[in-house]
């Protein structure tokens, strides 16, 4: 297993380097001059020239890339062109928020998606199946920004139950922290729950037809033991893979949800950075997200092997 993990980590390195080049190159292809975006309304030629010099924008692109990657190797992701803050500090501020939102959303998704999937597979073709499918599809189809605004209007403006926006760190005030992220994670989680439900359902349908499930029933085991212990455990293998990848997705930031609930996570930071052509910030976050995604992939593979002994090679 250790050898497997080491091999996977080594193969990830060229991927990360390629991603960094790709992001760097893509940004340079963006129309619009970053310096014009930064120089302010006055567009003073002296300021524009000063900015070009300061950020080495007159250098050839390969040279710009090399000096950036050299900094990255030393743990320096550069400074935000917009606010003068170091990109590592920004990532340090945003990453915990994004991780917390991702964890809470994935928990919501599990709590809704798995039971609904199991139930609809078990009661296949009945009204329960139709209902679960209907709810799942609705969750998938409702745009996050609409659901978010509706929830704010109902839960915050009408009922005054939860704050409409903002974020508090769990180390400062765990209760308040939970409250501020509850609505956003419900919005995000309900969409993801639909994916999990569909995957759980199809995996369960396959497993329920398997011989060992029939054997388990023939042994006279209680139905819920058959369902949970024998069927679900095996059905979960592909579901866990999907869930880890969804989690990796969440680490890239949930742009719309963060925007609506004003959560200072990755999504909001990267969108603002793209619009103000804040190159260093965009590159830093994409790199960080790529590493996170690759780590999640690795984790999915490891989990897969743990859950399914057949995939363990000698």
């Amino acid at each position: 297993m250790l050898e497997f993990i080491t091999r996977r980590i080594l193969t990830a390195i060229p991927t990360i380097i390629l991603i960094s080049m790709f992001v760097f190159g893509l940004q340079k292809l963006l129309p619009g001059d970053p310096v014009l975006a930064m120089a302010g309304e006055e567009r003073d030629p002296a300021v524009i020239e000063m900015l070009r010099q300061k950020y080495h924008l007159n250098d050839p692109i390969p040279q710009q890339y090399l000096s950036w990657i050299e900094g990255v190797a030393h743990g320096d992701l550069g400074i935000s062109l917009r606010t003068q803050e170091p990109v590592t500090v920004l990532i340090g501020q945003k990453l915990p928020v994004t991780i917390q939102l991702a964890i809470m959303s994935i928990i919501v998704a599990f709590l809704i998606g798995i039971p609904a999937g199991v139930l609809s597979a078990y009661k296949k073709g009945t009204w329960i199946d139709w209902l679960a499918n209907g709810i799942g599809l609705t969750g998938l189809s409702i745009p996050h920004f609409w659901l978010g605004i509706m929830m704010i209007l109902l839960v915050s403006v009408r009922l005054h139950w939860l704050p409409a926006s903002g974020y508090v760190s769990p180390w400062v005030d765990p209760v308040r922290s939970f409250e501020t992220l509850l609505m956003p994670s419900l919005v995000l989680g309900s969409g993801l729950a639909a994916y999990l439900m569909r995957h759980t359902r199809s995996a369960m349908l396959g497993v329920l037809k398997a011989d060992y499930v029939r054997t388990a029933r023939a042994k006279g085991l209680a139905e819920h033991t058959v369902l949970i212990k024998h069927a679900l455990r095996n059905a979960l293998v592909p579901v866990v893979t999907v869930a880890t990848l969804l989690f990796g997705d969440l680490l890239g930031g949930a742009v719309l949800t963060e925007q609506i609930f004003t959560i200072p996570g990755f999504g909001k930071l990267v969108v603002d950075a793209v619009f103000s052509r804040d190159y260093a910030v965009v590159q830093g976050i994409v790199l960080c997200t790529a590493v996170g995604f690759i780590a999640m992939n690795l984790l999915a593979d490891v989990a897969f092997r743990l859950l399914n002994p057949k995939t363990r090679t000698s």
Partner: peptide, 10 residues
């Protein structure tokens, strides 16, 4: 959303 936050008292 800004207005909703004002109406909610946030």
């Amino acid at each position: 959303v800004r207005l909703a936050n004002l109406k909610a008292g946030d």
